[in-house]
């Protein structure tokens, strides 16, 4: 099942509800970039509240998505990363240095709003 990507004004909202395997992740990357191209969105919020496991590959894909979207002129914010997930990522040495994060969807939208200066 592909991950749904919703449009809200000129933002895109993505809520990942299932455990993502490598294939879905790649598929999601392609879909999101397509959607950004089609809608001309200026900001993307990826909500990870229901995600309990993020391995190094998914982390890399997420990092790539952020960089790619940036190239296409859309800012990405990751929201709702769970404490356990954050600890595992840090333990694995994945710091996701350049990825903006926010506590929840609301904060994420506020952050996008601020960063885009709208």
């Amino acid at each position: 099942m592909p991950i749904p990507i919703l449009k809200l004004h000129n933002y895109l909202l993505v809520s990942i509800q299932t455990e993502i395997d490598d294939k879905t992740a790649i598929k999601f990357q392609e879909n999101l970039l397509d959607k950004i191209y089609k809608t001309g969105a200026s900001g993307v919020v990826i909500d990870l509240t229901s995600v309990e496991i993020i391995d190094s590959f998914i982390a890399k894909v997420l990092g790539d998505v952020v960089a790619m979207s940036d190239l296409m002129g859309a800012k990405v914010v990751l929201t709702g990363i769970q404490p356990a997930v954050a600890m595992t990522l840090i333990d694995l040495g994945i710091h996701m240095q350049n990825i903006p994060t926010a506590l929840d969807l609301e904060q994420g939208l506020i952050k996008l709003h601020q960063e885009l200066g709208e």
Binding site: I90, M96, T101
Partner: peptide, 12 residues
């Protein structure tokens, strides 16, 4: 540093 990084990841 690790704690601070983790806090940043969850968005604070």
């Amino acid at each position: 540093i690790q704690a601070a990084e983790a806090v940043r990841l969850i968005g604070a």
